[in-house]
Design a protein around this nucleic acid. Structure first.
Lengths: 269, 269
DNA sequence: GGGACTTTGG
DNA sequence: CCAAAGTCCC
């Protein structure tokens, strides 16, 4: 089965591109980030017409995540609070949606905060959010052990090879040591980067700044990931970034990333 | 020769539609209103590439007029002041551009103020602008008698048959008696409505509100006109409103209006 | 309803 | 460079 992740930078603006991409790439699951729309205004019909169940957690103007799935998703929940209880202002931004696909696979779709710049309030919010995600995942693993896949826009380049130019990365958002350490701590719970199972070299990116022709020059960052528990990682068949949508008129600044797992279908898992 | 007028509601947003329209309708002259852009940012090249000389008078965000002409236009001037001297704040809004085409035809392209609503400051500004236009035209006629064509967005429906529903027109902007009287006073200088030479009946409009499906129901207003001096009026061959562009995606709220004069070409006039 | 503007966020 | 919000104008 194929599970994709794509930060679409507004589902309403990108709806046609998403529909056309799904017709050309009929993945089993597509996790969306930055839908930027309240649930009442999310354009569900065009996606259900393509054969997808639609699960959403959105807000006005910012953030917002969604899971599209050919098979129904069970035990859908949003945010940290269903597992952790009150998490204060971490719950006002819609950045996490999760559910169970098939008998034994939890998909967790995240839009990790950007963080703006080192030392800012947003930076500390990002680190706090990552620490809370760690606690959330540890609790989930303890309470209901299943295979898990965390996918989405992490806003973190895990290694220097994930950046076109790692010069000055120590102070650059998405590549500072505290961010990488927070991600490594999450991975230490038992998650591995699906893309790096197949592709060791640099030059593969999932996000290119809109400015200064970054895409044209392939000056990008690999910040959209699939992190897999051991059982799923072992079954992963391949993982590719599809940069074709980034070449269209009015593209998202992110490209979709598709992971294939060696399961004939969800129900046969 | 064909002379068209079109309020494009932003030339930058409508550039592709204007270019495609000109390729399908290679008029000799196209007068544009509501270009909404300062002269430095006006997209001239695509229009010169189509064979037009481009003459512009624009400002940021609001108003702005332009003349496109296959033949060079001479004696280009903008605003009232070249004829009337200081007119105070009537000159800050870019609403008039004029020039001579061929040996003896002055084209005056106007974007008459909308006026907002009766009794407002904008309403009085509109009436003052119309009175000034009257003075301007009278002076022009006295100083250099040529045939003239005034075309553009007048923001006035001259008669009840120019409104889909004239109920309550006495208090509705674009149809109040003071506006019509100001226009009639201008016409009394010796101008006639080109469209009405050929089409006496109601149901023909050049503007439809974006809201409430006005175009779908043909609930429109005829407010874009060609006013011609007697010699040109006598030679007018036909005058039509092309509602096709109003049906496109992201249209202007106005349709172009094309007047044909029985001159083989400008230079043979 | 649509466009341009400014601010906020990326 | 883009997207959305809020404001003005038509």
């Amino acid at each position: 089965m194929k599970i994709a992740t794509w930060n679409v930078n507004s589902i309403r603006t990108r709806l046609e591109q998403v529909c056309q991409w799904l017709q050309a790439n009929p993945v089993d699951v597509l996790c969306l980030q930055e839908t930027k729309v309240v649930d009442e205004l999310f354009p569900q019909a065009p996606l259900t017409n393509l054969g997808y169940h639609v699960y959403i957690s959105g807000q006005k103007a910012y953030n917002g995540v969604a899971i599209l799935s050919r098979e129904p998703v069970t035990e859908i929940s949003t945010g940290f609070s269903p597992v952790l209880g009150d998490v204060g202002d971490l719950e006002t931004q819609k950045r996490l949606i999760t559910g169970i696909i098939g008998p034994n696979m939890r998909v967790i779709n995240v839009y990790i905060p950007n963080g703006s710049a080192m030392g800012t309030d947003k930076y500390h919010y990002k680190l706090q959010w990552l620490e809370t995600l760690h606690t959330y995942l540890a609790r989930l693993q303890r309470e209901s052990p299943t295979e898990m896949i965390i996918c989405g826009d992490f806003n973190i380049a895990p290694e220097d090879i994930d950046i076109h130019d790692p010069q000055g990365r120590e102070t650059h958002i998405m590549a500072t040591d505290p961010e990488r350490e927070a991600l490594a701590k999450i991975a230490a719970l038992g998650f591995q980067d699906g893309f790096r199972k197949f592709t060791p070299e640099t030059g593969h990116y999932s996000w290119w700044d809109y400015r200064t022709g970054a895409f044209r020059g392939n000056r990008g960052w690999r910040i959209d990931h699939h992190y897999l528990t051991a059982g799923l990682y072992a079954q992963a068949q391949n993982c590719v970034i599809d940069s074709a949508p980034r070449k269209l008129e009015k593209p998202s600044d992110h490209a979709p990333v598709i992971l294939e797992i060696g399961l004939a279908s969800v129900s046969s898992a």
